[in-house]
Write a protein that binds this DNA or RNA. Sequence first.
DNA 1: ATGCCTAGTGATACTAGA
Length: 256
Amino acid sequence: MKIATFNINGINGRLPVLLKWLKLASPDVVCLQELKAPQEKFPEAALQKAGYHALWLGQKSWNGVAIMSKQPMQELRQGLPGDRTDTHSRYLEVITYEKVIACIYLPNGNPYPGPKFDYKLAWFKRLIRHAKKLHAMELPVILAGDYNVMPTELDVYKPEKYLENALFRKEIRAAYQTLLKQGWTDALRHLYPDEAIYTFWDYLRHAWERNAGLRLDHFLLSPIVAANLQSGGVDKKVRGWEKASDHAPAWIEVLD
DNA sequence: ATGCCTAGTGATACTAGA
């Protein structure tokens, strides 16, 4: 089973990019972030025509997450528990291919310091609490998405520039480590322990041409899934396409 | 320190992204 995560940065503006990539990569399951579309503007028919079931959590203007699957899905959860006042569409959890799949769009958190950074940390703490419960169930679980965290210096083209950035602040890296220590495997880092792997290149300053990238999109695997991990990578070329998202799709293959 | 780029909203310069 091949699963991908792709911060699409506007699903309607980038529907041609998404459809072209789906045809090339043919993933079985896809987690999408940053739909930037209200619930009723999700292109369900076009994705159905491409062979996918879809469940999504839209929001006007910002955020928004979706999970697509070639097999039917059962929805487990919309949104993270722990804050009834949180209105952002950033978390969706389903069962498909006999696995629990979570689609995560962690808050960006910039500028640091400030209320957006506080929201990011609070959201991360809620994720850590929820992930602990999922891990304890000893099910096959994949937490996929845009974590807006570069976990280590290897994940940043120029780490010294990012020390005060919410994507790399020590509090956020520490939160990511706390999550991992529950027993999750960072799939791409596990497959490539020493390589610089990027999933994001800013639109600004010719970041793509300079390979000034960041690794922000991650798959965290529960032990049962980690034992069955076969391969993974980033479809870098998608970042070079016309009307590209600033993220490229990342993917892994696991034995069913 | 700022703009550099891009999308959404809505029709204008804004916010937000990372």
